[in-house]
Design a protein around this nucleic acid. Structure first.
Lengths: 229, 229
DNA sequence: ACAAAAGTGTTAGGCCTACACCCATGA
DNA sequence: TCATGGGTGTAGGCCTAACACTTTTGT
């Protein structure tokens, strides 16, 4: 006989979904998995699944993230719950959506997940459920967050160039910046440090390498600050 | 025999809770209800309750808001889900928390609810469950939101004075502003309009009345703008 | 040798901050 | 009449935005 779980009042099912952002140097990308079963078979979806009774939503989202990317330490933050009554045709399912920022080069990247793939924003396949809606909310949140937090650094390798950093900000905010003004603004923030002996800078054609200084950033956050764009 | 609802896998219970902010002219206030039953009997909690199977989380939160304040049109926005495994001692309960901004003068205000009362932030009673945590998140979100949205106007009567508006911003952001700079900043935004014939301004001791111009605000939002503080 | 990428510096204007004075009301 | 609350204007500094030239590498 099959075990079931009974309640006095109806309970919705609860899942987590994780919008995983990466940056390939030019465009923002999202990691999606192809659905092999109905409903929405053949559509693509964010990694996610049913929440276990002994884990918080964030733990569940991290578990899904780890299963798809191998990463255990990524930046992850809750977006919000999505609770439309008919968002899943099978039963009432509420999902708690998260977004994660990962360094795309550290992700084994759908090699053995086989069904997981990176897609650039703007070249997305058909998404399952209300995942297009969730993605729009995630993008909006990302744009907002970057004004208060240097979360962009989560998307870059440990060492990066100023043009890379600028391309990232432009991809997230969907605007263009003046090279010189952008570099000055970020440098005067004081959270970047050169990651390169001066001697090695042979030609000006090769960009200067920087690294993010997390301690300086923590100091600044204490005193309060704003990134203006 | 009692009816029950059975599932193949365990399902958590899902509630909504609504952090309702009001402004009395000097301080931010929160509407709380006293719990009459265990657990946390005698503690105070945000209005909330179990989500029905045919309503979205927002609809549930609005229903709770309406039951406690009589308001049907308030500004309401989702905070996030709170999912700690043991946040409710009875069973696994996940709550989807919202925050609402209401004009305190329009709220029947716990008169017939009898157990609902406004408390100023800073003079709060003991809160039930993880509601102190939820409140901190709500306050943080309110501070962030006010940089992008003139949500402060939701907390004021239709017609208000500049000193009132300033007191509200100071209460939310927990800072002090220079009177003259604050007035200029808000006026040059172009979303305030005088709500008073010039003649009636007899003495300068009586403050000028303003009203929020929602159309101008919508225009500005299209073009993109920022409130700086 | 020429195009593309990256480094660097200056200037003008706007916004923010700090600050002083006047008027009217109410005690 | 004096303290309080509210309205208004100005000057300095900082930050932002706009903009040009040089170097080097790769083709």
């Amino acid at each position: 006989m099959e075990k079931t779980y009974s309640y006095k009042y109806p309970h919705p099912a609860v899942t987590t979904d994780c919008v995983i952002f990466g940056f390939d140097g030019a465009r923002l990308q999202v990691l999606l998995v192809e659905r092999g079963i109905e409903p929405y078979k053949g559509h693509w979806a964010f990694p996610g699944g049913f929440l276990k009774m002994d884990e918080t939503a964030e733990q569940g989202a991290r578990r899904e993230l780890q299963e798809e990317t191998g990463l255990t330490t990524a930046y992850i933050e809750q977006l919000q719950a999505f609770s439309d009554v008919n968002r899943d045709p099978r039963e009432r399912v509420i999902t708690i959506a998260f977004y994660a920022l990962v360094n795309i080069t550290e992700v084994k990247g759908g090699d053995d997940a086989a069904d997981a793939r990176w897609f650039p924003l703007g070249e997305l396949p058909l998404l399952a459920f209300d995942h297009d809606h969730i993605l729009r909310v995630a993008q909006k949140r990302l744009k907002e967050q970057i004004h208060f937090n240097p979360i962009g650094f989560e998307l870059l390798p440990e060492v990066f160039t100023m043009p890379q950093l600028q391309a990232l900000y432009e991809a997230i905010l969907e605007v263009k910046f003046d090279r010189r003004n952008f570099a000055r603004k970020l440098l005067t923030l004081g959270i970047l440090e050169p990651a390169q002996p001066d001697q090695e800078r042979n030609g000006t054609r090769t960009p200067v390498l920087y690294r993010f200084n997390a301690e300086k950033y923590q100091e600044m956050k204490q005193r309060g600050f704003r990134l203006e764009f």
